[in-house]
């Protein structure tokens, strides 16, 4: 299988990650909840969601949202992209019938003192004009075609390190 991988030199602050749109169904919500072993009824039982939670329908659970963000970002980087850190602020919910849209912008690139290349991004999940979740993410990407963030172990992997040597 031929696989494309973005390298650090091809990424710069302000760069936009191609948008991802997806039409959510009840199956999306239920499959996502079960995949993340979340058996709570508001993610599969509409009657419970409406009458107990007071919302319109079952809704996407947070761990599955994390899986969506990861897919969105690694679709862009290719398989060498390795997620280091992700932060969420949940504001609203995603329901069946919603068209969810992921948008991302690079805020910073750089390398740490181990030579690992990092990309910081702002990512937004929205439905129509409603922001569902704001997320900031840090991904390791290869610095050149021979580099591979997945081979970093122990001290060579420091996703929290600051400051970075600025990239482009």
């Amino acid at each position: 299988m031929s696989v494309e991988n973005l390298t650090l030199g091809r990424i710069e602050a302000g760069q936009v990650v191609p948008e991802l749109a997806y039409d959510v169904t009840a199956t999306t919500v239920v499959l996502g909840a079960l995949a993340s072993r979340d058996w709570r009824p508001m993610h599969h039982d509409k009657d419970f969601a409406v009458n107990r939670n007071g919302v319109q329908d079952i809704f996407l659970n947070t761990p599955n949202q994390a899986a969506w963000f990861e897919r969105y970002l690694t679709d862009w980087t290719g398989p060498k992209g390795r997620i280091g850190k992700i932060q969420f602020r949940m504001k609203a919910s995603v329901f069946p019938g919603d068209r969810m849209v992921f948008k991302g912008t690079v805020t910073r690139t750089g390398t740490d003192d181990q030579g690992c290349g990092w990309v910081d991004l702002d990512v937004n999940l929205s439905v129509g004009d409603r922001t569902v979740t704001d997320c900031t993410a840090r991904l390791a990407v290869p610095t050149d075609d021979d580099d591979n963030p997945w081979q970093r172990r122990g001290d060579a992997w420091q996703p929290g390190q600051e400051p970075l040597t600025p990239g482009r």
């Binding site: 999306t28 996502g32 079960l34 599955n64 690694t74 679709d75 398989p79």
Partner: peptide
């Protein structure tokens, strides 16, 4: 696999054993 299917994540790192071996051992 169920998680990747739930978000239609086609990353070969999770689906292709050779890619997994080459990239992540």
């Amino acid at each position: 696999y169920t998680t990747c299917a739930s978000v239609e994540n086609g990353n070969p790192l999770y689906w292709d054993e050779k890619v997994a071996q080459d990239l992540a051992g």
